[in-house]
Nucleic acid binder design. Structure first.
Lengths: 138, 138
DNA sequence: TTAGATGCAAAGGGTTTGCAACGTC
DNA sequence: GACGTTGCAAACCCTTTGCATCTAA
């Protein structure tokens, strides 16, 4: 099962590498269609799966909605706002020792870890303030 | 919008508290049906969402499959085996300071964080060994 | 009494898949 | 030429929802 280099796959990877966001398959599909108008969603999904298996991108399963994909492969952490759902990269030093420590303790072979912070971003904190003050009601 | 205590909700919570696994809604549905044979899946989903909103259980979005629910509410970490997909609780001290630190650095209001280790469990490590030795082929 | 909860079934929505045609190696 | 890949559409499957009925408070 040897992988082939297709225009579709290359374009998907380019799109993903070019953005700083963590797009959904749907967004990627729209973006790729600007270059390859006839690409199908199935192809996008198939390639995202392949790229993820090959370690070219990572698939993030963060909430109940659609998967998101990350073209930034250096280890880094995330922050998700529970107000607006936006995902941010966190510039916090990656802790490599913790894998080692847990590996020793558990005997599991640990390859990496995901760390995600949850809370409210600046905008949503402000909105909460305004809610409290009575400007916004639900 | 006042919450009511129903037999369905109580049973779901009991089932979830009694297990050490991280079951899917479907497994919970089957389990609850042993006691309440006429409960519907919609009710299970609705209650899981309510319990999760109320902080009684937590909903884990770990991979592309179905959501899993965790009745253990004390903060703890997870390990997911990439071989068999099994999820384990990790007995590693919960790091509360890191929230504080990232909060100061970013200005985000951080409430909590999720940490998940990935790799291979004991069984799957052994299987990989056997694969290498040629006993298992793909 | 009344508004929240249930059961049922249908709809939703992201993702996967079967298949014939196509393109890469 | 062989076989991995594509486009298309239908199928899948987990989850949500509308609605009449029921029930906890």
């Amino acid at each position: 099962m040897n992988r082939r280099q297709t225009l579709q796959k290359k374009t998907i990877l380019t799109v993903l590498r070019k953005t700083d966001t963590h797009p959904t398959a749907d967004w990627i599909y729209d973006e790729v269609r600007k270059v390859l108008p006839h690409i199908s969603k199935g192809t996008v999904y198939r390639n995202l799966k392949i790229l993820s298996e090959d370690g070219e991108v990572s698939e993030l399963h963060l909430n109940g909605d659609a998967s998101r994909y990350d073209g930034k492969m250096s280890p880094h952490y995330h922050f998700r706002c529970e107000g607006c759902g936006k995902l941010y990269d966190i510039d916090e030093p990656f802790n490599a020792e913790i894998d080692e420590r847990v590996m020793k303790k558990t005997g599991f072979m640990i390859l990496y870890h995901h760390l995600e912070f949850r809370g409210f971003c600046h905008t949503c904190q402000n909105n909460k303030e305004r809610e409290k003050e009575g400007y916004i009601n639900e």
